[in-house]
Amino acid sequence: MRLAQAIPVVLGVVLVSFLLTRALPGDPAAYFAGDAATPESIAATRAKLGLDKSMPEQFLRYCGDLLRGDLGQSLSTGQPVLDELTRRLPASLELTLTALLISCGIAVPLGVLAATRPGSWVDHLCRVLVTAGVSLPTFFTGVVLIYVFYYLTGWAPSPLGRLDFIYIEPPTVTGFLLIDAALDGDGETWAAALRQLILPALTLALFTMAPIARMTRAAMLSALSSDFIRTARAAGLTSRKVLFAYAFRNALLPVVTTLGMVFSFTLGANVLVEKVFAWPGIGSFAVEALVASDYAAVQGFVLCMALLFVALNLVIDMAYSLIDPRIGFDSK
């Protein structure tokens, strides 16, 4: 049911991504024909790329390619776009998911604690962290973390990519190095991958902590002041039960909403972190493609992100109906 609703969204995204990339400034044919190109060679390149056809025809050919799973060739790397994406997307996802795990692990308990003791030191700590988290840009915290943990103390490995070159990449199963290494039973590589991951993930986590902590605190405060909390307390339920079974589950809904929003913007916005840590993710790929007017790559990137968001919204909707019985009832 919800899946069916996603189909028009995907179709719309295909069209919009196509039109947007055609609207990019610069002539890709001129760019790829090279510096020493003559008008004839540019025209030849254009014909080779199919850019001399009319827009509707180009779109139909694009759709046909899509159906065959062909996203085109990246003009700058010469690789098929699909290969590039499948190689780079797991890197970005691994980074983002780890960052969000860290961020939730800290922000949610902090928000809960702050809400149960408003005005206490936990509350103040929460406020400081939230303010610092949003006001420091990720490239700055990233560089500071590298300076402290790599340059000064040397605890972290050099911030270059996902795995130090002395380790051999585990056989690709999921593309997530941590999972692949674990599946391979290679503890050493696993630890190495984790060491590479920890600093960029921390940088992103610091940034995403703010909205999550703030929303948890607000949602908990409003849940704790509801009438049903008073009923639960008047019935003698323990503070623990009241806090978790009654208040927290009700506060979860807005927190999940925020989480979804944070996830989607982090996935798109971690370009800076990827750049600072030389992380071979999808963000840096997209920016390079954009600069080079590499329309096939940009198209593929936009499409891939859109599909991810559609999937993400689906997951969040499902989480809603798990948490709140009222939502499931309405859709029946």
């Binding site: 009438d227 008073r230 009923t231 008047a234 019935a235 003698g236 009654y246 019985p325 009222r326």
Partner: peptide
């Protein structure tokens, strides 16, 4: 709840909705 217990106004809000 065991010795003294209480009934509230607005019963719908007085129950945990989920």
């Amino acid at each position: 709840g065991r010795e003294i217990s209480m009934i509230f106004q607005n019963p719908r809000a007085a129950l945990n909705p989920i």
